[in-house]
Amino acid sequence: MSSTEQGTSSAAPAEPTTAPESAAAPEVPESFYYVHGKDKVVHKVSAGALQHSALIHGMISNLGYTEEQAKANPFPFENIDGDILQMVVDWCNQHKGKPTPPEDTNLPKQKEKLFDLVLAVNYLEIKELLTYCCKQVAMMVKGKSPEEIREIWMIPTDAEDEAAEKEAKKRAGKEAAGETAAAAGDAK
């Protein structure tokens, strides 16, 4: 848990960006947990909202944290950008305990962010949001020509792929040769 502790210490001055103050009132029986992304900004999320994520839900049920422990040890998601985690947390809060609508208009339209979101959501195992995101990704190329699809999704052509593979092989070969030479030098 050292990484978590580091995250907490660095994120200590940061205010929880989500969940209104009233939600944390003692009379509310709901428990809250804390998560942070690459930017170490801690987000306060209710257990109900976190149920969307199979990964976090599993972590919560296995750890059995009290509220204080949860506050002291926010779940670290170092591979997720802060703004992306914010989006996910917002979505989870919006859809807390609600049936998920067939369409979600709040998803980002920028392709870079969308792919980031897909990767993050897949990692956090939020099934409904992943379905929306994948649909959004598919919609990006609807009715487009093969060339346009290649451009939008940045799909490398077979020639480009082959060239990249050749380069990778060359590099691997050279690295291996360098290692063997170094090993031989050490042996001497």
């Binding site: 392709k111 870079e112 792919f115 980031d116 990767l119 990704v137 940045m154 799909i155 490398p156």
Partner: peptide, 8 residues
């Protein structure tokens, strides 16, 4: 840059 190729 995150794109289609980054997806599994």
């Amino acid at each position: 840059e995150k794109n289609w190729n980054c997806l599994s």
